Simulated assay, not measured.
Amino acid sequence: MKLYDLIHKYDWNVVWSTRVFLDEYFEKDHFKNLYMRTYQLLRQIEPVKSNDSIQIEKSYDEISKEYIWEVFCINESNDNERLGWLDFTPWSDWLGMKISENTKNNFAEPHIMVIILGSGQVNHLKYNIIDQ
C-alpha cells in the first residue's frame, strides 16, 4: 500500500483521534489546524511514481536523551537498503512510496499516518513546501 492510498483510506477525524497515542509528537492541540490543512492538502496532491518504501523506526537519541521517530526511505528489493531521510523530500514523492512491510507489521495504519504527518510537517513548513 502506498502512502497516497493510506491518506485516502482514513478521514481526518480518525487521524486526529489517533494522535492521542503519540501526543508528544503532535505537541498537544497547538498545531491542530496546521496538521488538518496539511492532511487535506495531501489528499489533493498527485503522487510521483516510486519503487522505494517508507520505513518508520523509533530510536533513542543520545543527544536529547529521548526516543524519536525516524522516517526514512528504503529499497525493500535490495535487502532494505537505507536510501536516506525524507525530511526535505516533496510530499508528492512521499505519496508515491509504499509503506514498508516492517512498518505495516509494527504500526496500525492510522499511527503510520500520524508519525509521517508529524515527521514531514516541520521541515516542509520551514521550506515553504506547504503554503501557510
Score class of each variant (00 low, 15 high):
residue 61 D to E: 12
residue 50 S to K: 04
residue 43 R to P: 02
residue 120 G to I: 03
residue 90 P to Q: 06
residue 58 K to Q: 15
residue 57 E to C: 11
residue 80 N to F: 13
residue 33 N to M: 01
residue 38 T to V: 05
residue 30 H to K: 07
residue 45 I to K: 03
residue 97 M to I: 04
residue 87 D to C: 10
residue 46 E to A: 11
residue 6 L to D: 02
residue 46 E to G: 08
residue 31 F to R: 03
residue 95 L to H: 09
residue 90 P to A: 07
residue 77 S to W: 04
residue 132 Q to V: 06
residue 66 E to R: 10
residue 35 Y to L: 00
residue 112 I to L: 03
residue 115 I to N: 06
residue 127 Y to L: 01
residue 91 W to H: 07
residue 30 H to F: 05
residue 90 P to L: 10
residue 43 R to K: 09
residue 25 Y to W: 10
residue 73 C to T: 06
residue 20 V to D: 08
residue 10 Y to C: 07
residue 63 I to W: 02
residue 105 N to A: 15
residue 17 S to K: 11
residue 77 S to D: 15
residue 72 F to C: 14
residue 115 I to H: 01
residue 70 E to I: 14
residue 23 D to S: 12
residue 94 W to D: 02
residue 55 Q to Y: 05
residue 57 E to K: 04
residue 53 S to V: 01
residue 26 F to I: 01
residue 47 P to E: 01
residue 88 F to Y: 11
residue 104 K to I: 07
residue 70 E to C: 15
residue 65 K to D: 13
residue 33 N to W: 01
residue 56 I to F: 01
residue 72 F to G: 11
residue 114 V to N: 13
residue 117 L to S: 01
residue 75 N to I: 05
residue 52 D to A: 10
residue 83 L to K: 11
residue 45 I to M: 06
residue 106 N to E: 12
residue 27 E to L: 09
residue 105 N to E: 15
residue 33 N to I: 00
residue 90 P to N: 12
residue 103 T to S: 10
residue 50 S to P: 03
residue 84 G to A: 06
residue 51 N to L: 10
residue 21 F to P: 07
residue 104 K to S: 10
residue 70 E to R: 14
residue 41 L to V: 02
residue 21 F to T: 13
residue 120 G to V: 03
residue 130 I to Q: 09
residue 87 D to H: 12
residue 39 Y to T: 02
residue 87 D to Y: 08
